[in-house]
Structures are given as structure tokens and as C-alpha cells.
Design a protein around this nucleic acid. Structure first.
Lengths: 230, 230
DNA sequence: CCGTACTGTCATCAAACCGTAATATACATC
DNA sequence: GATGTATATTACGGTTTGATGACAGTACGG
């Protein structure tokens, strides 16, 4: 499951960093831009799912950029949340008038921002039907957060759940311990490589009730693989 | 059945009183608010069935408030009738544009207002999908505002009621504390995440008499889930 | 004005979970 | 079969997370 991509266009580095940090912690991928031009470049190449746009920007203002984006066919559907400095009523209305989907008044709390982003995204692409993964009778429901095999509920810890989720979405391919750490634990997290062995063990144990532990194969000298083909 | 609750937001006391009087005589419960802020407070705590909203308000204007309410998930479904001073065509269009369900031009007769209110309520209420929710013998009547399990009435606070209502309308799905705050408490309310735990606890306690507390499941590291599957 | 109901926060406790190291086992090569 | 290496398994201490009870502030009705 890919993370949603957020682009923040804001000339104040402090705010940009703060927001970006909050976004990544909330599970979004965050890109930054200094001004409108840079922002447009980012939009063109990364096609963000949502844009946080500062009201005041040097050069082309946020309002102008918003208006421009909403006029373009390609970018019209990308939701925009304006970051406005003061609670000027007229500004807010104008912001919404140019097509922004919501606005947040500075100073704002990271949580409020995240909440608004989620709300806007929810409005734009409502209730995604649940992606239920199934391999050989092993079922993983990422929305309901549970795993079952032929009707029987399987219990496991959060890490094992993520690990299994990763495997089920990336089958038939060997991943080294390092790669697994990178993709399941997350980038800049430092844990011993051998720890992967332990979690593999825990995962196997959790799914062995119906013989699904066979799906996780050890590839000596290379890593692990998830596959139906023995 | 309880009376419908109407909220009038209007800065002119004379009109407010007049309308209120007419409403009560027509069999509605009527609450009053002076401006947008006061109005929002009323909405949050009394959940009116319909809002009469003055076009011009000091501070946050009626238009802006309407737009805001229509953007919030919690308040989106509350019908709004705008009270406009003059029959400016542009205003009417804009008013409906922001999501208002109808408008009335001042000066208006009480009878006309009541007629329009009834019309709007009639139009809106058939859209109410399920007034009474039922899961595994647990019954929640969102209109009557009560909960019962196998005939036994269950007592709980307003927040627990909303929480349960949300859960019953969104089962089999894990929600993080943040999402719950976002969707049950509403946005721009700043509450500690751990507070969710406490209300979960209160809700469980309220419905445990017939073992329904099992329906609310903790998903470690992820949040909570409401589901019959155990 | 006082009692009641409700809410949000905090402190504390128990359980679940995680990472690491130690030990046992499997594998490959000679 | 012996030896060295890679993996499996187990055990354990520390940390995180959730459950729970207590408490103070607030709103409200009487």
C-alpha cells in the first residue's frame, strides 16, 4: 500500500519542516517546495495527492497558484488546503472562492492539520473498498486488521502483521534481511539484522496452524521469500 | 417522538424572538444563538435537526458558517435555511451554492417559514438511511437517542452514544485514536489521544450487561474495532 | 446557589511486544 | 565426518501500550 503524497509549498523553512515532520509521522510521504515555481515543478513530476499551500508566497502568491491549478485540467482534482496567516474572514472566503478545498489558520496544531488532510482526502476519494489479500487460503484484511486461515482467526503482533502484509503484497521474490528491515521496519531505524530471523520465526508460528508457515521460505545466504511454489 | 429541534442563528433580537415564538407554537423546540460562534457551540452540543441562519452576521458571516458546516462530516446532514435580507438573485444562488437547503427572504411571515421548514425536513428525513441500528441484539435508536440490549435500556453519556453510533455505522474496520477523534469528536477539537481510551472504557462498561463489550475490540498498535467476529 | 452529570487528563498497573544474546540445529565444503 | 558458517529457536530484560480508577473543571437543572 503506497502512502499518500503530500506536497507543502511554503516559504518559511521552520513551518515547512514542522509540517513535513508531522506529515511523515502521520504516514504520508511529504515533499517540500519553497515557492510557486518550485511547487509547480513538484506537482508536475510527483503528482501529489494533496497540496498544502501557503497563502503568502514570494513571487506568485498562493492564491494565484491555487487559481491556476484549479484551472488546469490535469491538476484540477488535486485537493488544496490553504495555510492562512491571520483569521481574516475575507481571505478565507476568497481562498475557498479560488477553489481551495479547506483552509487552516496559523498557528495550527499538527494534529488539526492531519485531521483536515484526512477529512479532505476522505471527501475526495470516499471509503476505499477494503483491500483484502488472499493467498492459498490465508486471508489478510488490512482494514479490519486481522488475519485468518480457513475461517480460523490467527493472532500475531503488529510487526508480524506488517511483515506478513509486506510479504503478501510482494510474493515470489527474495528479500534480504536488510531489505526487510528497510521496508517493514522503516528507513532510518537501526535494528540488528538477526532480529528479522526472530520475527520470521514468530510469524511462522502464528500462521502454522493450517500449514501456511511453508509459504515463508528461507533462502540460504540471501534472505526470505514468500511464495506458494515450494 | 420528540419534537424537532430548530436552531436559529440571528443577531437581530427582535427577529430571533419572533421566529422562536412561531417555532415553538408550531411544535418545534427552538434554540437561539447570537452569532456564528455561539451557533457552533449550540450545534455541537444539541445537534439540531435544522438550522435557520441569518445571511449577515457580525464576525463570521452566515455564508461562511454554512460553508463550514457543510464541509464538516458531523454537521453536513443538518439542513440549513438561510434568512436573507433582500431577494438578490446573486445572493440566492451563492447561498444555495454553499450548501444551504433553502432560503427565505425577509420580511417573511411565520407561516411561510414554518411551511418551508416542514418542506425541508420532509425532503431531508426520507434520506435518513437507518434510524434504528441493530447489531447482535444491541439496538441504537439515533432518533430517540437511546440504546438497549434485549429489552434492557442502557445508559451512557453523549460522547459514548456518538462513539457507539459511529462504530455501529462503521463496523469491521480498525480506527486509530486519531481517526476516532476526528470523526466522533469532530475536527478542530483538541483532545488528548488517550482520552479515547477512557471513553472506550466507559462505552464498554455501559454495554457490558449483555456481553456486548466484546464487540469493541482493541487492536494493539492500531486502534479499536467494532465487530461481531470475535 | 448547590448537587448532578459529563468530560478530559493523569497516575498507576498489567500485559503485550520488541530487540538482543545465547544456544541449538542445519548446511556446505572439504 | 569434521569444521566453519548460516539459520532456527529459546530465553530474557526493557520498553511500549492499553486498561482502569481517581480527580478536577464545567455545564446544567433545580
Amino acid at each position: 500500500m503506497e502512502n499518500r503524497r503530500i506536497l507543502i509549498i511554503e516559504d518559511e523553512p521552520a513551518i515547512r519542516e514542522m509540517v513535513c515532520f508531522a506529515m511523515e509521522r502521520a504516514g504520508f510521504d511529504c515533499a517540500q517546495a519553497n515557492d510557486a515555481e518550485e511547487g509547480q515543478a513538484c506537482i508536475a513530476e510527483r503528482a501529489p495527492d494533496l497540496i498544502l499551500l501557503d497563502w503568502m508566497l514570494p513571487g506568485i502568491s498562493g492564491v494565484d497558484l491555487a487559481r491556476r491549478l484549479k484551472r488546469e485540467e490535469l491538476t484540477r482534482n488535486i485537493p488544496i488546503i490553504m495555510l492562512t496567516a491571520k483569521g481574516e474572514e475575507a481571505d478565507r472566503i476568497r481562498g475557498l472562492d479560488v477553489g481551495a478545498d479547506d483552509y487552516v489558520v496559523k498557528p495550527f496544531s499538527p494534529r488539526e492539520l492531519v485531521a483536515r488532510i484526512n477529512a479532505v482526502l476522505r471527501r475526495v476519494s470516499p471509503e476505499t473498498p477494503e483491500p483484502v489479500l488472499e493467498v492459498d487460503g490465508l486471508v489478510l484484511d488490512s482494514v479490519g486488521h486481522w488475519v485468518s486461515a480457513k475461517g480460523q482467526r490467527l493472532e500475531m503482533g503488529p510487526t508480524e502483521f506488517r511483515l506478513l502484509h509486506f510479504f503478501m503484497t510482494h510474493p515470489d521474490r527474495v528479500y534480504s534481511r536488510e531489505q526487510l528491515l528497510d521496508r517493514v521496519w522503516g528507513r532510518n531505524v537501526y535494528v540488528e539484522e538477526r532480529t528479522v530471523d526472530v520475527h520470521i520465526r514468530r510469524l511462522r508460528k502464528a500462521i502454522e496452524a493450517r500449514g501456511h508457515d511453508k509459504l515463508i521460505q528461507t533462502v540460504r545466504g540471501a534472505g526470505y521469500r514468500f511464495s506458494t511454489r515450494g
